[in-house]
């Protein structure tokens, strides 16, 4: 049996469609009702929906053999897992954003609002820039508008929210997309099945 952790939400549903098309379907996954775990004896796969930020933990600790997580989540939480395939869906960018007339205040630490403090710190550390990171859980764009911070580090898909708040992308940190990940021990004991699953999802 292969256990699969899917991220709740649109991305998870999109990836489930890919898995189903690849022959790993499971009845009722998209309509689980109150059931938390769904098993299909025909395909011998077990699915469960978890919070996107938790997928890496479920996989790293072996509760799931494989899962799907955004590259942003993997970079932020650094779970010790194999990254078997780029699913090329949920594509966006991790960016530094601010007001269009932003000028870096080089005489003091740069104030940054973000949901991704580790990514932000790594990026600015690599440049030797001193930063003051403010961790927020939502409405990140509000921070520079109200003067809480100078810039934000966040994922940008279309840029619509930024434009509506007179913000712009100042710099791209990296590309983000959904990744098919595997527990490092499961990969060894279920090597043939997991390698085949990765291949069928477009892994190179």
């Amino acid at each position: 049996m292969i256990s699969i952790a899917l991220p709740k939400g649109r991305l998870g549903e999109k990836v489930y469609a890919m898995l189903e098309a690849a022959g790993y379907g499971c009845k009722d996954v998209l309509n689980p009702g109150r059931r938390l775990v769904l098993y299909d004896p025909e395909t011998d796969v077990r699915y469960f929906w978890v919070k996107p930020t938790d997928v890496g933990i479920y996989v790293e600790r072996g509760a799931a053999d494989v899962g799907v997580a955004g590259k942003d989540i993997l970079d932020e939480y650094s779970p010790d897992v194999f990254e078997l395939a780029d699913l090329r869906t949920g594509v966006c960018r991790m960016c530094v954003c601010g007001k269009a007339d932003f000028v870096d205040p080089v005489d003091r630490p740069l104030r940054i609002a973000t949901k991704f403090p580790h990514i932000a710190r790594r990026f600015f550390d690599s440049r030797g820039r001193d930063v003051d990171i403010v961790k927020l859980h939502g409405s990140i764009e509000l921070a520079p508008v109200l003067g809480l911070t100078d810039v934000i580090v966040d994922i940008v898909e279309t840029g619509g929210t930024l434009r509506e708040n007179d913000l712009t992308v100042l710099e791209t940190i990296g590309d983000v997309s959904a990744r098919f990940i595997a527990n490092k021990v499961s990969y060894r004991f279920k090597n043939a099945e997991l390698s085949e699953m990765a291949r069928s999802l477009g892994g190179s």
């Binding site: 078997l84 395939a85 780029d86």
Partner: peptide
């Protein structure tokens, strides 16, 4: 270490 084939590409 991550067996990240796409990353290697």
């Amino acid at each position: 270490e991550a067996k990240n084939a796409d990353g290697i590409s």
